[in-house]
């Protein structure tokens, strides 16, 4: 039997590469980019919003 070769050359992350984004531009980045970069480090602002019931059903 021939084993299936894993041809993946890289394991991509969802972390945007911000190394060459000028520091001055960082606060102007969309919240998505910053939140995504920080999501595993600190709670996203969305999570800090006033909580609302997740229940959704129309009647």
């Amino acid at each position: 039997m021939i084993a299936t070769e894993d041809k993946r050359s890289e394991y991509p992350s969802d972390l945007a590469d911000l190394r060459r984004v000028p520091l001055a531009d960082l606060p102007a980045l969309s919240n998505d980019v910053l939140d995504n970069a920080l999501r595993r480090l600190v709670p996203a602002p969305l999570a800090g919003q006033v909580p609302v019931a997740a229940f959704t059903s129309s009647i």
Binding site: Y11, A16, V21, A28, D32
Partner: peptide
């Protein structure tokens, strides 16, 4: 929505780790 820069700020592609190193 993964990378939506504003005001023209350029964001490079996402990071990754080469398979051998992973």
């Amino acid at each position: 929505t993964a990378q939506v820069p504003q005001r023209g700020a350029a964001v490079s592609p996402a990071h990754g780790v080469p398979a051998a190193e992973f």
